[in-house]
Amino acid sequence: MKSMSLYVERESTVHHIDPITKLVYIAAAIALPIILPSLHTAWICMLISFVILGMGRVLTRSLPIIGFVGFILLTVVIIQGFFHVGNETVLFRLGSWPFYEEGLLFAMGITFRALNIVGAFLILVLTTKPSDLVESLVRKGLSPRIGYVLSSVFQIIPQMMATVDTITDAQRSRGMETEGKLMTRIKAFLPLIGPVVLSSLIDTKERTLALQVRGFNVKGSKTFLNEEKMYRYGSAMRWSMLAIVIGAVIWRVIA
């Protein structure tokens, strides 16, 4: 089945860590370089994120995404290196264009922080089942309705895409041109999108009925089929991350 999730099934310690701890890690990984805005915090945090990805044995999976983000960040390096406001020290010249050290360092700071955030999110996305994430959020007090929306998206959207394919084939078999020039495609848009919207509306009504008779609106506390995923050192990890962030704040204030 087509799935929208990026989750990679692997056996590793990182996979066993509960989703909440990973969420706390994201928060800490974003907060730390903001609290301590030196270049060193930025690259250390980035390195930690990448090491965790490596421990989760998903580093190869994250390379295309990191590469894509890195490509965009490369343009930042080029632009800042040539045009940063505080540019003074010339590093090298490209023809008659000087490339400055200040701009490079500034751009490196941005790059490390951005890659750090991407890495932290990838840890969550690549090593956590979406359903586990939503379930632990619902346990922590997220409304089950919002939880349902979040977790059903991963399966309902591919279903809708399959419907689009079916409708496209059906319209094509009636002789409609769906490929070719831009004008042809624009003309094909309405006869395609109309049935898609209508059928989704009907599906939604039917699914609403089906959910309602499965107790979706029943008041009172919910139970869970799966036992809560608890990592033995989860709470220790969360507290130590909090301690590091608080420590960083104190460091910033004192120093």
Binding site: S131, V134, I156, R207, A210
Partner: peptide
């Protein structure tokens, strides 16, 4: 049967 699947379970 398709619209009775909740879509939130794997």
């Amino acid at each position: 049967p398709f619209t009775q699947v909740t879509g939130s379970k794997l």
